[in-house]
Design a protein around this nucleic acid. Structure first.
Lengths: 106, 106
DNA sequence: TTGTTATTTGGCAATTTAACCAAATATCGC
DNA sequence: GCGATATTTGGTTAAATTGCCAAATAACAA
């Protein structure tokens, strides 16, 4: 693997890593229906304001969400909706795993 | 968010996290063309045998790859090929990011 | 300008992850 | 059984990630 390829895989992994957290995954799904401000996320789950803000910042750094300040609030939106397509595949993996678990028991 | 939903997002994140590492992402792509034994990965990149083995173990735990021992070697294969579809979306994110970087410069 | 709400930032402790080395295990041919 | 090859496991250490708290910043209304 060349250094260039290595750099490229690092970059790809960075994008996936941004989504690879339960809270951030949930956030991405919430944004499927449209933009939300930070406060909206905080209200939906019971979490620290700063924790939510930092998670959003990770998603933004990765290029997955965009932010726009309007008045006092910052609105976040999905910049690349195709990330939502990951879900069905992830669920396929999980169903597979559940099936195998069940076979072990029976 | 209920405890049940939380558990579900944890599980989803665990699957994504397994892929969110440059080496493991590379491994998944290598498996696109068919099964490979541990040795084959080690030869393709210059890495420690045990490191590769552990990465494969992470992918296996997540349910992304399957392993089968035949003779002295263990062959790994992609159990859920749809994970390869992630790549195009991840690349879309990266191109977007590159474009914005370019705009900053100009 | 002062107070209030919305959000980000900095710092810190706890946990997790990753890489490398050495040792253990398994299979096979002799 | 013995040595050689293939792979996994255990341990150790460094680095990255999380979550929470307190403080800083921004916008706006009174």
């Amino acid at each position: 693997m060349t250094a260039k390829e290595k750099t490229r895989y690092d970059a790809k992994a960075r994008v996936l890593k941004a989504l690879a957290h339960p809270t951030r995954l949930w956030m991405a799904e919430q944004l499927a229906e449209g933009e939300l401000c930070v406060r909206a996320f905080v209200d939906k789950i019971d979490a620290d304001f700063s924790t939510i803000s930092k998670h959003l910042s990770v998603l933004k750094q990765a290029g997955i969400v965009a932010d726009e300040k309007r008045g006092k609030q910052v609105y976040y939106s999905l910049k690349v909706p195709c990330v939502l397509n990951f879900m069905s595949c992830v669920e396929a993996v999980m169903e597979n795993n559940a099936k195998e678990q069940a076979e072990l028991v029976s």
